[in-house]
Design a protein around this nucleic acid. Sequence first.
DNA 1: GATGAATGAGACTTCATTCAT
DNA 2: CATGAATGAAGTCTCATTCAT
Lengths: 195, 195, 195, 195
Amino acid sequence: MRKYKEKEILIFKTTWGLFSEKGFHDIKISEIAKLSGIGKGTVYEYFKSKEELVQEMIIYNLEIAHEKVISEIEIIDSPVEKLRVIGINDINRKMDILKTLKIIQMITDFSKNNIKESVFENIGKRFKLVQEIIEEGIKEGIINTDNASNATILYTGTMNNALMIDNFTNGSAINMDEILEYVIDTLTKKASDYR
Amino acid sequence: MRKYKEKEILIFKTTWGLFSEKGFHDIKISEIAKLSGIGKGTVYEYFKSKEELVQEMIIYNLEIAHEKVISEIEIIDSPVEKLRVIGINDINRKMDILKTLKIIQMITDFSKNNIKESVFENIGKRFKLVQEIIEEGIKEGIINTDNASNATILYTGTMNNALMIDNFTNGSAINMDEILEYVIDTLTKKASDYR
Amino acid sequence: MRKYKEKEILIFKTTWGLFSEKGFHDIKISEIAKLSGIGKGTVYEYFKSKEELVQEMIIYNLEIAHEKVISEIEIIDSPVEKLRVIGINDINRKMDILKTLKIIQMITDFSKNNIKESVFENIGKRFKLVQEIIEEGIKEGIINTDNASNATILYTGTMNNALMIDNFTNGSAINMDEILEYVIDTLTKKASDYR
Amino acid sequence: MRKYKEKEILIFKTTWGLFSEKGFHDIKISEIAKLSGIGKGTVYEYFKSKEELVQEMIIYNLEIAHEKVISEIEIIDSPVEKLRVIGINDINRKMDILKTLKIIQMITDFSKNNIKESVFENIGKRFKLVQEIIEEGIKEGIINTDNASNATILYTGTMNNALMIDNFTNGSAINMDEILEYVIDTLTKKASDYR
DNA sequence: GATGAATGAGACTTCATTCAT
DNA sequence: CATGAATGAAGTCTCATTCAT
């Protein structure tokens, strides 16, 4: 993670904030500048183009988010507890997750391939983190599955799906905490549960 | 589902085709017209604005897709087999599913609320269909879960997630058929499986 | 005055009706057709272009208006009474006069010179009519002026100005009948009036 | 009268210049920009829309014109001489008067009501100015009429009418200076004149 | 470094006109 | 004669980007 200048981070935060409601084309440089309290020209002092700004912002946010998750689970021992903390974290940072999903859909908006790779790399890190936790859980006999990769897809897919539906229905259709327990239950389901 | 004119459908198909690679703002009326083999003005004979065109196209495609799924599973008895057929269908129509996910992310691009409702309604139909199949499976003792709604989120979330990763990695990371079996297995997992 | 076909007159009337509220560019052929109860293509059966249609309509209306005035004053003997009848007529057909004034302002909108000439000719007819009446009045010693042409400008200008102000102020500032009497008084003012 | 920026005035002047030959719809922003020696986008830096630009230009010109007239008559004592100066002024600024008359006809082209009010207010100022001068003349016994308001309509109507005819006939039919004297004579006509 | 006035490419949309039926 | 679906020229307006201060 490269060293970011103070003003770059300011611009990133403003731009990320605009992502909730707007897409790439609806975010205006003039708006970013005004909300950041700086001049339009200043934005171009730090970024060659709007596209570069948005791409770097995306990478910055994915990196920040990943570091946050890492720091929060490193003190936890139990793999299941780790999944739970990751889940709770996602629920609390719901909008960030949704923006990440938006970015994945938007990826074709960007011309340069390096952004695609960079996003891919960062999302991959997240995937690997969950997968390693699940593998740990399998080793410890707590998680019941024969395929950690598939279980990772299941875990992340279920959580993301729930967050999307929750957002789409303005929180009226989904109890996120219940979903988290449900997916953890599913992964830890044992033969004895059915006896 | 209202009766669509021949030319409307032509325009819908061209526009839907452009969705793979482009977002709302990157789709140009001039391009739609040219690819449809009609004049720019003709597009406006059928739709008041670009926004209306895109919205009606979305609704049209969601409706068509739903009808297709319905017709394919109505001759099948077994709930598990139904889920499998739906899954296979999704895998085959991968791009359509991804476009639908894109639409959900794009929903804030649209000003009028009726499109949001309409998309919500159509996606809801899909959700309910899967949920009913799962409830059927629970009743028949084939599917093992205490919450059909959560299981639906798990099933659709896992499949969508897999399709996204598959697309993102150009098919190199995911075996979709395996994922489908994995999620069906998960839902039908019984105590005896672990003995 | 050439012989007009029934449908031409229909189109003229619709178009003339639209002139109250709209200018040349705001009148749409599609609107004329719809309000006339005919097809858009039909309009082009009778007129080569929108410009030609509007020009012919203008000439038609000026001619009709002039004939009407002629027929109304031909049975009257007194020049002053003639001026009064013309004035009353103008007040009653207020909108037509205002449209004529509008046309004069719009004349530069038209490319062909023959329309300018035609309008000029028709408005000239009106001018000459009034001037002849005034000359008659001078001869009879009822109208007091040494210049019939200037008096004509004064009479028509005052009346038109009053109608414009009346229209502009939605009838709240002007008593048209009073103005008419005022201008007639002015023209007939005699030395004895002041004794 | 609000403070106008230098570039606003530049744009106003160019636009006002185009009014001689063109109506609202025939004036193109691209043409205004080119003739002003600025970019198309620059016009939109100063005015939200073409409509707003034209409206503000109209108000600006009416205000400027009024101020000019005021400054020219304030040093004159005699009411008759004031009318004469106003008349000479109008003759010299013939095109401006004709544009003002054009504006009155065009007023329906504008959607917002505030422009109508603004134009009304400015034209009203002009009317009141003349009316006050005439009232002054009546008091001094120089102007002979029992109704200053009607006399104002007569004076302005005659002059405007003459200017219109003059313009329409390319100056071949009217001697403007003679008309001015004629209308002043008419207003000052006394019983003794006829003895 | 910071700024924001100026720019013009490019997109949407309208509507007079055509022409096959 | 009558029609209206189809067309594309042309105009308005937006906004990323530049550059002189």
